[in-house]
Each structure stands twice: as structure tokens, then as C-alpha cells.
């Protein structure tokens, strides 16, 4: 198990390196420096700022300097927010995004799994068809359509929640549902498919022959196997949650990392962009590792490679 994790982390190093390198050189290849947009800056000050941020060194030197600092956990200063480090900004906004992501995942799992189980157990009935039709709609409707729509309906017309913002505890509801809806739908479909596969297995017949009740069969014998497709979906889902958070945090004006990233990208805040991408990449790698471990825990036939 320890070896497995270590192995995975070692494999992640080249991936991380490629991501950082691609991002770094893409950013550096951009026409115009980070300070070129500021109008009233004199040539002299521009030189000074470039000097200060090390932008006059050859690109490869800058890259290795950046790598060296990044390895020590130092992502540098923001170009746009004076005196603030990227680390500070991530530390400040990431918990917000994490809360949003965790709540939407909770919503997705809490709605998706029961809906999928219902669909499988009551296969080809009214319940199955209605659950799966709703799920299909949830999948086809993109976040940036759902978000404004439910904020229009539940925020503006019905007045149950604030249209946007991140102040009261009720403010988490609409964004979490918006972000989680597509995943709830996807999980429902995956759960239904997985459960149908499992419910047709011989060992379910064995469990029935033992005298188990239908609920014990579903929850004790079938669910573990039926959830395997859902678990392997969790890796990509987490990566998707990140890009979903860009949209949802923009729609609902939530001060999370996603919105910071979009703003940094729009304002060419290079260090912030680089740092965020690196941070996201590490998050995705950790998430995938957790998913891999979870899969082995759920499925005894898999061994840690």
C-alpha cells in the first residue's frame, strides 16, 4: 500500500513537470509583459519592475528559478495585487472553493446514488423512467445555463435565496446545486448501470437463496459492486468540478479560487496563473490517488500494482 502510493507519486512528477513547463512557457511566449497594459508607467519604472521580478533573465533561468521556489512551496508574488503572495491568495480563497466543491459533491452523491439504485431496483417502471429522464436533462444542461436559471427562479422570482453572494449560510445552496447537478445526474446513471449489472450476477441469487431481505441484498450485497463505476468516475469528476467552479463562482460572485483564476487570467497575472495551475494539478493528482486507493478498498480483487 505504501509502495503503491509512493509509486503513484513518483509517476506524478513528470506529469507535474510537463504541466508547469507548458504553462510557464506558454505564459512567457505571450506578446507583451505583465506590465505593458498599465498606461502611465514610464520606461524606467517598467525596467525596474522587470528587474525586480527577474523578467530580464533568460527564460530558462527564470523557469528554473521558478521551479526551485515552487519546490520549496513558494509560488512568488502576485504581479497585480501589490505586496501579496500567490500562496496567501490561494490560502485565502481555496477554502471557499473547497467548501463549495465538497457540498456539491455531497449533493451529487446524496441525490445520484439513491436515484440510481431506485432506477435499477424498479427497472423499467415509472420511477425508473422519471429518475433517468431527469438525469439526462441534468447531464445535457450546462452549468452556465442551470446557474442563471435557478438563480432567476429561486432567487429572483420565488425569493427563497439570495441571487448571488457568499455571506449567509443559505448562500451555499444554489451554487452547490448548480455545480453538483450534472454530477448527480451522471452518478445516477452510472449507479443504475452498475447496479443492474450486479443484480444480474449469480451471487445475488445466492444471497436471495440464503433468505436475505431485498433491502439487505441491495445495500449489503449489491451496492459495493454497483458503485465501482461511480468511484472510477470520481477522478475526472473532481477535475470537472474545478472548471465548473470557474463558472459557478462567477455566476454567484463567490470569492473562491476559481474566480481568482479567471480574473488572474483576464488580467495577465502570470505568477497567480502559474501558481493556481500548479496547485490545481497537484489537487487533481491527489484526488486521482485517493480514487485509486478507494477502488482497491472497494474491490478486493484488485491489488495495489
Amino acid at each position: 500500500m505504501f509502495k503503491f502510493i509512493l509509486n503513484r507519486l513518483l509517476q506524478a512528477i513528470p506529469v507535474l513537470f510537463i504541466i508547469v513547463a507548458m504553462t510557464f512557457f506558454m505564459v512567457r511566449a505571450a506578446p507583451g509583459g505583465p506590465f505593458s497594459q498599465e498606461r502611465k508607467v514610464s520606461q524606467q519604472i517598467l525596467e525596474k519592475m522587470n528587474e525586480h521580478y527577474g523578467l530580464n533573465d533568460p527564460v530558462y533561468v527564470q523557469f528554473f528559478n521558478y521551479l526551485k521556489h515552487a519546490l520549496q512551496g513558494d509560488l512568488g508574488y502576485s504581479y497585480k495585487h501589490e505586496g501579496r503572495t500567490v500562496n496567501e491568495m490561494i490560502a485565502e480563497s481555496f477554502p471557499v472553493s473547497l467548501k463549495l466543491g465538497a457540498l456539491s459533491l455531497l449533493f451529487a452523491v446524496g441525490v445520484g446514488i439513491p436515484a440510481g439504485v431506485l432506477g435499477a431496483v424498479k427497472k423499467n417502471t415509472f420511477w425508473d423512467y422519471s429518475a433517468m429522464s431527469v438525469a439526462l436533462m441534468g447531464i445535457c444542461l450546462p452549468t452556465f445555463v442551470v446557474g442563471p436559471l435557478i438563480s432567476l427562479i429561486f432567487g429572483l422570482w420565488l425569493g427563497w435565496f439570495n441571487v448571488s453572494g457568499w455571506f449567509e449560510s443559505g448562500d451555499v445552496v444554489l451554487p452547490s446545486i448548480t455545480l453538483g447537478l450534472a454530477y448527480a445526474a451522471y452518478i445516477a446513471r452510472l449507479t443504475r448501470g452498475g447496479m443492474l449489472d450486479v443484480l444480474n450476477q449469480d451471487y445475488i441469487r445466492t444471497a436471495r437463496a440464503k433468505g436475505l431481505s431485498p433491502s439487505a441484498i441491495v445495500w449489503k450485497h449489491a451496492l459495493k459492486g454497483g458503485l465501482l463505476p461511480v468511484v472510477s468516475f470520481m477522478g475526472p469528476a473532481l477535475a470537472g468540478l474545478i472548471s465548473g467552479s470557474f463558472v459557478v463562482e462567477t455566476i454567484f460572485q463567490i470569492p473562491g479560487l476559481g474566480r481568482h483564476f479567471v480574473n488572474a487570467a483576464l488580467s495577465r497575472d502570470y505568477t497567480m496563473v502559474l501558481g493556481t495551475v500548479l496547485f490545481y494539478a497537484v489537487m487533481i493528482i491527489i484526488a486521482n490517488l485517493v480514487v485509486d486507493i478507494l477502488q482497491v478498498v472497494l474491490n478486493p480483487r484488485l491489488k495495489y500494482e
Binding site: 506558454m26 479567471v262 490545481y280
Partner: peptide, 9 residues
Amino acid sequence: IFIILLMVI
């Protein structure tokens, strides 16, 4: 994320 970067740059 990469496409966002591309578009920005």
C-alpha cells in the same frame, strides 16, 4: 485551464 491560458495569451 489550458484553453483559457491560450485564449488569454
